[in-house]
Amino acid sequence: MRHIISILLENESGALSRVSGLFSARGYNIESLTVAPTEDPSLSRMTVVSVGSDDIIEQITKQLNKLIDVVKVVDLSEAAHLERELMLVKVRATGKDREEMKRVADIFRGRIIDVTESTYVIELTGNTGKLDAFLGAIDTSLILETVRTGVCGIGRGDRILKV
């Protein structure tokens, strides 16, 4: 099953490689990984999306907690949560495709943030499924380039991950 694991860790050089090294050394899967400092600059927050059985996810959270730089670990997918991913797509936008591309971007609440005579860059946020759906909805041959941030997530309501 797919799990979203949120990690608060010391914002120190090497902390990221301790986490990524753990996943590769123990053969755990990473679908995506995002990391950035929090409002407290001494802490970073990381979101890892991984797929595995309950036993494996349990081991992953235990092994993460064992890392000295890791302060807290939460499996967001255990309860109600929100997840978002940002994608930038550069597409060919000429002739009749130009209007059609804008129309589809509007339907998905995307924004066109760069325009040239022949291309658009479309910015889109949402959960992974929505971004995949957008890519499915446009003509693949028109896609020049895509870049995605990977998932970041947060618990709903009173679920708070803080030191």
Binding site: S13, G14, S17, R18, G21, A25, I68
Partner: peptide, 14 residues
């Protein structure tokens, strides 16, 4: 050193 030994120490520091 920190990179090479990372998987075989409890923790390391530079």
């Amino acid at each position: 050193t920190v990179g090479i030994t990372r998987p075989c120490v409890k923790h390391n520091f530079l």
